Simulated scan of single mutants.
Amino acid sequence: MALREYTDDEYERLRRSERELTGNRERATVTDVAVGEDTARLTLGFEWTADSESVGYDLDDARDVMELKAVAADAGYGYDQLFHLEGETIPVVYLEDGWVPAAALPGGGPGGAGGAAQRSPSLADSAYRRLTDWVDDLTARSVVLGVIVTKKLLIASALVYLMVA
């Protein structure tokens, strides 16, 4: 039996089918928050695919509004601070209809709205969250490149100092 290479589309399809099983939990980054007159839409991005998923909420439906409040509260924001969700990483669950934020499900999700107090995150909380996300994204290659660039800048500034002094 001859081995063959998968095409990019086949590989992507296999990766998606592995993840998109009913009840599977993943982490997704909210890449866009759009609030209109009667709808709100969260666009979710995943690190394992270039495609994004969109979750819509009807602002005239009490249940959808409660779900949206739970998603905001799970991330530490108030309902009127939905735009702060952009860039946040939230837990999501795959259902038959697609990906849904775990906090929007009955019983909440990890850290669901049932036990979370409705509070606004402080500037320190937001800065700490962003800093830890940034540190988690660092790779050995980026650290080495940063050290090399810093070393070259120090040498160049020392040469300039010696020429001026």
Rank of each mutant, 00 (worst) to 15 (best):
1 M>T: 05
4 R>T: 07
4 R>V: 05
4 R>C: 08
4 R>P: 05
5 E>Y: 11
5 E>M: 14
5 E>V: 10
8 D>F: 08
9 D>Y: 11
12 E>F: 08
14 L>R: 13
15 R>P: 02
16 R>D: 01
17 S>C: 12
17 S>Y: 14
20 E>A: 05
21 L>S: 14
22 T>C: 04
23 G>K: 09
24 N>A: 09
26 E>W: 05
29 T>R: 02
30 V>Q: 02
33 V>Y: 06
33 V>L: 04
37 E>R: 09
37 E>D: 15
39 T>Q: 03
39 T>S: 05
40 A>N: 01
40 A>D: 01
41 R>S: 08
44 L>E: 05
45 G>C: 03
45 G>Q: 01
46 F>S: 00
47 E>L: 00
47 E>D: 01
50 A>F: 06
50 A>L: 06
51 D>C: 14
52 S>Y: 07
54 S>N: 07
60 D>R: 02
62 A>N: 14
63 R>F: 09
64 D>A: 07
66 M>S: 11
66 M>F: 14
66 M>L: 14
70 A>R: 00
71 V>Y: 00
71 V>K: 00
72 A>T: 01
72 A>S: 05
73 A>C: 14
76 G>R: 02
77 Y>G: 03
77 Y>A: 03
77 Y>F: 14
77 Y>W: 11
78 G>S: 07
78 G>P: 02
79 Y>C: 02
80 D>K: 09
80 D>Y: 09
81 Q>V: 05
81 Q>A: 05
83 F>S: 04
84 H>C: 04
89 T>C: 04
89 T>F: 10
91 P>Q: 11
93 V>T: 01
93 V>F: 02
93 V>M: 02
94 Y>G: 00
94 Y>Q: 06
94 Y>R: 07
95 L>A: 12
95 L>D: 09
97 D>F: 07
97 D>H: 10
98 G>W: 07
100 V>C: 03
102 A>R: 01
107 G>P: 08
110 P>E: 07
110 P>I: 12
110 P>S: 13
112 G>V: 05
116 A>M: 09
119 R>P: 04
120 S>M: 11
122 S>A: 11
124 A>T: 12
125 D>H: 08
125 D>L: 13
126 S>R: 11
128 Y>S: 15
130 R>K: 11
137 D>C: 06
139 T>Y: 13
140 A>W: 15
142 S>Y: 09
144 V>F: 15
144 V>H: 15
145 L>T: 09
146 G>D: 12
146 G>K: 06
147 V>A: 12
148 I>C: 12
150 T>S: 15
151 K>N: 14
152 K>T: 13
153 L>A: 11
155 I>W: 13
155 I>C: 12
155 I>L: 15
158 A>P: 08
159 L>K: 14
161 Y>H: 15
161 Y>P: 04
163 M>Y: 09
164 V>E: 05
164 V>I: 10
164 V>P: 02
164 V>L: 04
